[in-house]
Structure formats: structure tokens, C-alpha cells
Design a protein around this nucleic acid. Structure first.
Lengths: 178, 178
DNA sequence: CTGGATAATGAGTCCTGACTCGACTTGTAC
DNA sequence: GTACAAGTCGAGTCAGGACTCATTATCCAG
């Protein structure tokens, strides 16, 4: 698909619907949800989904790309702790977040996918360290590891707001002085 | 199966083989590995596996029960930080550990499964607090949450030893003063 | 040694989910 | 308006995995 020709109007509409449906379905049931379910929720036949996204992975990749862009943008608006909190809360609601951070399965399709997020978090880390909010011994890899872990945990454990807060409090204390 | 009669000798041998094979297979490929693969590695026909464990979940439950007992025992031999470190290292190698901690799918079959582990960790936490190694504001739920999260993270992220250590260092610092 | 209970075997069933493709419908350029 | 490329449809194919069961093999009491 080398941008040969613009999509027909109805095709554009359907493509958008499919993406929205996929976003909702995968967020709710995880990446293991069936393509049929996506088609159903989009009000479209299964064949149409596969016309737009020849492979389930292509569909997943499209969703992840969207999500990633959102996260990077979000990172620009917060400090490290705020972003951390936001991400964990999001992961508790959207299974896709944890899947993305874990880079499970889809990573190949998004070459530098996590790269952008990593850079964004790197910036937040530097700021936080400059402000004296985080110890200088802390490095990016472990921050990313903590971020991914907390998202996985929040997802699988079904943490409520309070547990999220108490758990993050421990992490934040550890980042401050380590 | 109300313990009607002791198993025949060959049946006992096969049961043990199946359990060992299942342990290895699920540790390597996660709980999604097929029952066929277990049978293959046990050198046994598929029907035999289902004779001993009528359901894949039954097999999984048996493995998890074993694993859990090991972990609880291990907890008795270490302090909180040591156990934490051990568990994370184990999770990086055995997918079953993270699955167990996440309580995914199999939890119903192991009624108080995590209960025992929780108690054991609770004891470690008390000791650590008594020794002044962990702040008194820290409670059990967040310790369990951190434990489960780190295991998930170590598994999915494929952390090396160094990253494990650096990440845990942050957590430990957070537990000490929070 | 041998009969009958206990196990093992593995081809077959059923189901789910990704993906295909020929018949049909619709947007759009002219 | 019409032709035809672009899109849609959905029954159908295929693969993989859980689980069954009639047949065959194996243990072990007596």
C-alpha cells in the first residue's frame, strides 16, 4: 500500500470504525480477543476488517501506534511521578497498555515503538533529577522496567485506586533516595 | 477419585513423569503450551495425560500447588529482601511463577492458594519491620502487589541480572523509608 | 500362570479463530 | 446515467488445541 490512491469515502468511514472498535475490544479483552468480535462491534463483515488490515497483527500494530502516540503526548504534559501514576491507572483499565509496555508479540511491527516512549520518559527523569526529586543514581532502564512492571501488575491484579496509590508510594520513595 | 485404591505401579510412574514434563513445559512456554507437548515430553500418549488429569486446568493446578509449596518453604529460609530477589530471579526463568502470582485462570482450583504465600510474606514483612529494615507504614497488600508486578516485569521484559538488581534496589530503598 | 481389572494408546471429534475468495454492491469519474 | 474500479459480504477453508473412546497392552491377585 504505497499510498497509491486515496480511499473511497465509505472505505475511510469503515476503516475508522474498525479502528475504534478494535481499540475498545482489545482494551477490554486484551490482544487475544478475536477479529470477529472487532468486526461485530464495528458493524462490518469479517472480510472488511481483513481488507483494511491483512493480518490481525497489522490491526494490533495500528492500535498500538495510536496508543503510543497518546502516551508520548501525555508524557509531555506531566512530571515523572504524574506520568507514572497516570500510566498505571490507565493500565488498570486498558489491557492494551500493559501489552504495549511488555512489547509482547507486536514489537517487530513497531520498529522503534518503545524508543519514542523511552526518550520521553528519559526527559522526565532528567527533569526530576535536576529538580532534586529523584536520586542521581537512578537510570532509565530501571525506570522503564518499573513502569512496565507496575502496568502488568495493575492489570492482572485488578488494583483499586488505593492499592495503586500505596504501591506507587513505595516506588516513588525508592526513586527519591536510593 | 476418593482415594479408592492405590495406583498401579506403571500408573504412578507415568503420573510422576507427566508432572515433571508439565513443570518443564509450562515453565518454558507458559500456561498456553499445549497438552500434547506435555505428553510428548513425558513420553506418553495424550490420552494418558487426560486419564490422570481430566482437564488441562487440573494439570495446571497440580503444578501450581507444587510450585506454591516450594515458594512458601523458600520464604521460611530468607528475609524479605532475599525472598524478593529470589522470586524475581525465578520468575525470569519460569513463566509459571508470574502466572501463579497473577492468579490468572487457575485461581479457582487453588482455593486459598495465595493465602499461604501471603501469610509467609506477611511474616517476613513483620520481621523486617521489627528489625528496622522496612518502614512501619508499609503494609502487606502493596508488598504482594510489588512482588507480583516485579515477577511479571522480569518475565515479559527478559531482564538480565543487572537490571533485576538495579530495579530491586529502587524498591528496597522505597520499602526502607516511605 | 492366568483372568480380569486397571492403564495406555492414538486416531478421531469438536470447537475456535485466523484468513480466503467469488459473488455482489456502491462510489465516482466521465 | 452508466461503467467499472473499489469495497463489502460471509460462507468456507485450514490449523491448532482440548478432550473422547474403542481397542490393545499391562499389572498383579489368587
Amino acid at each position: 500500500m504505497v499510498e497509491g490512491s486515496p480511499l473511497r469515502a465509505d472505505a475511510q468511514r469503515n476503516r475508522a470504525r474498525i479502528l475504534d472498535a478494535a481499540e475498545a475490544v482489545f482494551a477490554e479483552f486484551g490482544t487475544r480477543a478475536s477479529t470477529e468480535e472487532v468486526a461485530r462491534r464495528a458493524g462490518v463483515a469479517i472480510g472488511t476488517v481483513f481488507r483494511h488490515f491483512p493480518t490481525k497483527d497489522d490491526l494490533l500494530a495500528a492500535i498500538m501506534k495510536r496508543l503510543l502516540a497518546q502516551l508520548v503526548e501525555e508524557a509531555g504534559k506531566r512530571d515523572l511521578f504524574g506520568f507514572f501514576t497516570h500510566l498505571v491507572a490507565l493500565a488498570a483499565a486498558k489491557k492494551t497498555v500493559a501489552d504495549l509496555l511488555a512489547g509482547s508479540g507486536v514489537d517487530i511491527r513497531l520498529p522503534d515503538a518503545l524508543g519514542h516512549l523511552k526518550e520521553a520518559v528519559g526527559r522526565l527523569l532528567k527533569q526530576a533529577q535536576a529538580a532534586g526529586a529523584v536520586a542521581h543514581t537512578v537510570r532509565l532502564p530501571e525506570v522503564m522496567a518499573l513502569l512496565a512492571s507496575m502496568c502488568q501488575g495493575a492489570l492482572h491484579g485488578g488494583w483499586d485506586k488505593q492499592l495503586q496509590a500505596r504501591t506507587l508510594a513505595v516506588i516513588f520513595a525508592g526513586l527519591k533516595r536510593d
